[in-house]
Design a protein around this nucleic acid. Sequence first.
DNA 1: GGCACACAACCGAACGATCGGTACATTACT
DNA 2: AGTAATGTACCGATCGTTCGGTTGTGTGCC
Lengths: 200, 200
Amino acid sequence: MIGRCTVWYNPLTTCMPPALLSRDDVVDRLMTVFRHAGYDGTSLSELSQATGLGKSSLYHYFPDGKDDMLLSVLERLAAQLRASLFEPLRGPGTPRKRIAAMIRTLDTFYVHGTEPCLLAQIVLGSTRGRFRAPLRAMFAEWMDAITCVLVDAGVSKTIARHRAEDAVVRIEGALVLAGGVDDAQVFTRMLKQLSAALLE
Amino acid sequence: MIGRCTVWYNPLTTCMPPALLSRDDVVDRLMTVFRHAGYDGTSLSELSQATGLGKSSLYHYFPDGKDDMLLSVLERLAAQLRASLFEPLRGPGTPRKRIAAMIRTLDTFYVHGTEPCLLAQIVLGSTRGRFRAPLRAMFAEWMDAITCVLVDAGVSKTIARHRAEDAVVRIEGALVLAGGVDDAQVFTRMLKQLSAALLE
DNA sequence: GGCACACAACCGAACGATCGGTACATTACT
DNA sequence: AGTAATGTACCGATCGTTCGGTTGTGTGCC
């Protein structure tokens, strides 16, 4: 457990009532900061404030510093996506229902298009090279899962792969444009037509 | 004119043969840096090196500092897009040819999907709020131009607007995904089917 | 033409602040 | 007692910014 359960816990930096933070909780908080500001726009002070942990504590759990923190965040994101998005896409249920589930998950994950995508955040930014591998893996796994559900729906593998790519393209693009014109409905509109676009 | 035409011009920092740099040239160089690293990932030292101007000289032309520089870059980008993308979309020629021209322009502008989009770069990043207005305007103008050409092609205004939004979504998304999986063909594939998707 | 002056263009050096990161002693828990 | 967790104090580097000054060019006056 990270964080001591005492009333005077970290009185200077914490912005929350005393609580026990699991490592995953800490990584989640790091994730929200990175998600909004990217790697370059995030400072250790902000990460310290967001987690309620001092800098030395952060370095205790992430010995390799900021890179280590973002890498842990990406690992956790991969696990989250796998559990809530990729596996349900392959899992039981009719293809139509599985796709509907993905769309619901995306809607909550990106809070109806108001929250940015961490993946896109890292793809851009000056550190892309250092995190290329996990990014690539996540995008690939995502497209593979969509391909799978489309094949189950009777779509040929080639076309399925093509449509999966187009789906991810639209999701990422809609998030960018929604942020650019300050209109989250760009995202929700896209989600609404996504199922039809995939299954034709 | 910026830059004196002498052999010993800026011998320490310049990375180019002596030349006269117009203000637009300087802004162009700033643009390429911002485009690749975003606002947060770009330092004044890099901007200084990229332009061949000392840091203090940059403040001579952009008195309000880094924000001023990015704002000038966005203004220039708006002018460039207007001249090479938006106006041709409205201008003479059949709708089909105008769309083909846009696709060619996009292909060169993003160098077949290998170069990132400055707009997306600013939409993400911690400074989005400060540059919201010009971003919004550029995206809106872009979608308006596409809407215009589709209306000229006989598409109803409502559907045209919808398809224009979808086109920008795909372009931005394809750039993100192309960077994410390190495969520029994601972008070129999308470009290839864009004309058909717009005109159906 | 020669000269003084204003001003744009540009520079090196330095500013205070903050960056990411470290050393080490202390505290808390087992 | 021993180890994990944390706070304090610091490091050198770099951040964005400002300062003071130099160089070159054009302008008006004699």
